[in-house]
Structure formats: C-alpha cells, structure tokens
Design a protein around this nucleic acid. Sequence first.
DNA 1: TAGAGTTGTCTATATAACTATACAAGTTGA
DNA 2: TCAACTTGTATAGTTATATAGACAACTCTA
Lengths: 239, 239
Amino acid sequence: MNVDDGIARWRRVADGIRTLAAESDADGGLLPSEAALAERFGVNRHTVRRAIAALAAEGLVHTERGRGTFFRKLPGRLHYPIGTRTRFSENISRQAREPAGRLIQASVEPADARIAAALGLRIGAAVHRMETLHVADGMPLSVSTSWFSVERFPAIVAAYAETGSVSKALEAHGLVDYHRRETRVAAEHVSPADAAHLACPADAIVIVAESLNVDPEGQPMQRSRTRFAADRIELVFAT
Amino acid sequence: MNVDDGIARWRRVADGIRTLAAESDADGGLLPSEAALAERFGVNRHTVRRAIAALAAEGLVHTERGRGTFFRKLPGRLHYPIGTRTRFSENISRQAREPAGRLIQASVEPADARIAAALGLRIGAAVHRMETLHVADGMPLSVSTSWFSVERFPAIVAAYAETGSVSKALEAHGLVDYHRRETRVAAEHVSPADAAHLACPADAIVIVAESLNVDPEGQPMQRSRTRFAADRIELVFAT
DNA sequence: TAGAGTTGTCTATATAACTATACAAGTTGA
DNA sequence: TCAACTTGTATAGTTATATAGACAACTCTA
C-alpha cells in the first residue's frame, strides 16, 4: 500500500473491500471491523473509514454504530450472449424486464475510410450515425454508436426512435434477418460523455465491442461500437 | 479535473496524454507544450510535468530541453482470436515472435463448490491451481489461473513448467485435442499482484476471460481465468 | 448490569499533492 | 544576433491525504 502511483490509499482500500464483498457469498454480510480492516490493508483506521464512506455513498455498504458495517450483495452481472444472431432486446429480456433503447443523437455524415471499408461503401458516401442508450429495469447498460448507409436505410433513424429496437427498425426496411460477422472486444476507461449516459463514476470501465452485422447475402449493413458498463454486464460467448 | 475520487490529477493528466498519443497517427510525434497541456487539462504546469515524468519512466515519451516532448507510437493492440480451439502460442505467434508461457506459482488445493461444479468433481477433490504469465516479444500480455484435476493430470505442473505451453502439457497426458466450451468476458481494474506481473500501471484495466475447456468426450478438464492487459490486446470473436 | 467490542467524533501532526510565480537554460527561425 | 518559443529549476504557500491517539456513543452477550 505504499506505491507512489497516484491512486489514494483510501481508494485502493475501497477497491479491496469491494472485492471482499464480491467474493463473499453471504448476502447482507458483515464486514470485518474497521480496526481489523486497517490492519489487513496496513493503513490507519481513518483511511479505512474514508474508504467505507465512499462505498456507502455508492450504496454498496451501510454502517450501524456499535454493530458494524454491512455490505449489500450486488445483483450479479447480467449475461450478454454474443453469437451470430445477437439482439439486445431478446437477450436482456430473458433476465430483466422492460429492456428499452433510446435514441440519444443522430446525424448524417460522410463515411470515413474505416466506415466505408466496413460497410462496403465509397469514402464520403452518406451514412447515418446513431447514438443509442440501452436500459434494462431502469439501469443503463450500454451506449452504442451505429453506422448505416443512408442510401439503403433512409428512414432508419425515425424507425429506431419509434420502436427503440434496431431489429424492428431494420424490419421496417424489409430486412428481417441479419447476423453478426465479427466482434472485437476491448476495454477502456469510460469517456466523460458515456459516463453521463451510463450514470457511472468517472473511473469506471467500459467493455468496448465493435461488430459488423451483415444481411443474408453477406452484405455488411451495420457497423457498431458498443460500450458496456463493465460492472453491470459480462459478455458470454457460447461455442 | 476536480472530482474528489482518490485519483491524483497528474495520473489523470498522464492518462489523457496517453490517449492523445494513441489517437495521433503520426509516429514519434511532438506533444503540445507543457503550458498548452496545462491549459487543456485545467491544471498547473508542474502537474503536467509530473504526468510527463511518469510517462517518461514508462518509456512512452522523452523530452528535450528547449524542443519539447515527443511520444513514441506504441504498437497497436494484438488480436487474440477466441474460438473453439484457442491456443495462446498459435494465436500470438502469427503476430509476434517468441510467445512464451512462464509458471508463476502452482499449488494443490481442494476444489471449492465452483471449481468442482465446473470440472465435474466432488467438492474437496484435489485440484492443481496454476498461475501462468504469457509474454510475447518481451511484453507481458496476460496472467492466467487454471485449475486441473490432480487425479486426471497428476504431472501437469511439471509438464507446463518444462514446455511453457498448456497444449503440450496436456499432450504429455495423452490429451491431444480439446476445445473451449464457453467464454465469459468481463473487465476490471487490475489487481496489485497482476499489475506487477503485467508491468502495467496500478490503474490499468484487465479483460477477464473465464473459460472452460473440455476434452473430445465433452468432459470438462480445464477451468481458467485469464486477465489480459487491456491496452495491449483485444479479443476477436469471429463467427 | 458490566464489560468487551463496535462505530462516531475530535484534535493534532506529518507528508504528499497541487498551485503560483519567477527565472535560468536550451532551441528555433527570422 | 535577437525574439519567441521550449524545458529545467527554485521557492513558497495552500490543500488533500494519511497517521496517531483519545474518548464518546452504541450494541451485544455473559
């Protein structure tokens, strides 16, 4: 606990307590006393108290004077199956009620080299760029940026805004089947804009999944980059 | 830059400069001056200097008095294909020379409920627990914890230590083919122990991939939990 | 009820982090 | 050479972080 790495000790103690709570299987369990935690992490009791205060502000723990500090068992991460036919609504609705997609922002822009190559368009061709937020049971799970050819899907934005679902918006263009060709998974610190949409702390982590959806003829039609709140979801690749 | 979140400002400035460098396509480029960076991030010039000192210690930048600070273009993320027959050595050797696995620690322990269920053993059955480090071209890429049944693979640890490869260690037990049944992907802050092995900063991110390998008869034989340095690798799921 | 164990609060001190200002020393190009 | 830029260094003051100890307030059990 002495490395000069720009991370306050109370924050590392807080992270340590968080994993303590996560690894315990008991629900509503009792944490070790502040004195015990201080000794375990090699810090002063006041530092432990600051860590606990931060966790209490997050809602992870609550303290009762004379009794101790209790942690709440957080709901486990939702499973997000990634396969060849992934649909946000279908996947999540098996685990949570009321999945919903909301349009954050949309614009038409010329395709840069990367988007053009992915969608099989010429550079500069008009593409829709849609920012969408995905929520389940009131909890924001992911923010996604998608690109579609304007020529092929002229009304995709309006259709999405109306239905809250990419599948349904594509159906409105006569495309009833499509599948995922490739998914690349990385992880990064959340951007300030995404943190605001996902309602997560500034040092949170997002899993970044970039994928390409193709129609039954193998023609690419949607390029997307989705940022998942890493503390709320895990991706499951079944084989 | 004013949130009271226990992360030093110089560290966040350092992260900001890191992404500045990553987003630039120029190689060996010149960073903005310390004064300009201080204004951009809303901090004092000395704070910028401390951030730059940290980056210089990492080898990402170097400064020349009177001229400025230059960054080195880091190699892009390696692609780690995840499929039904993923092998570390084979995958990485297509992109980098000299992939190597090194045994960090090994022990025999009784299987807890989770491991027992995954491997199809009874609770308390002896399992090998192996911590391994995977390196390519001198750069640590991942740390992995694996569990094997002691009864079925009595000499797995010695075989791995000798060959540096799980595939070869399993071959030594007569198992020439196996495949990956499921992979769960999450992302977390790196643990202090893993940060030391991966030689990455304390606030770095790891992609956590938990998977189960099964033999040709469908019998689970290896449970593993791999932590990838998220700034060096991305997982690719081709479908 | 008494005592042991818990959290809450207070004061004090030391160190690290950050800011502010000034100037020296080096580089570049007009 | 000179002016305008850059980084390097020094000093000082302020705020945040962490430690140390003492004691009050509260809970539980013997």
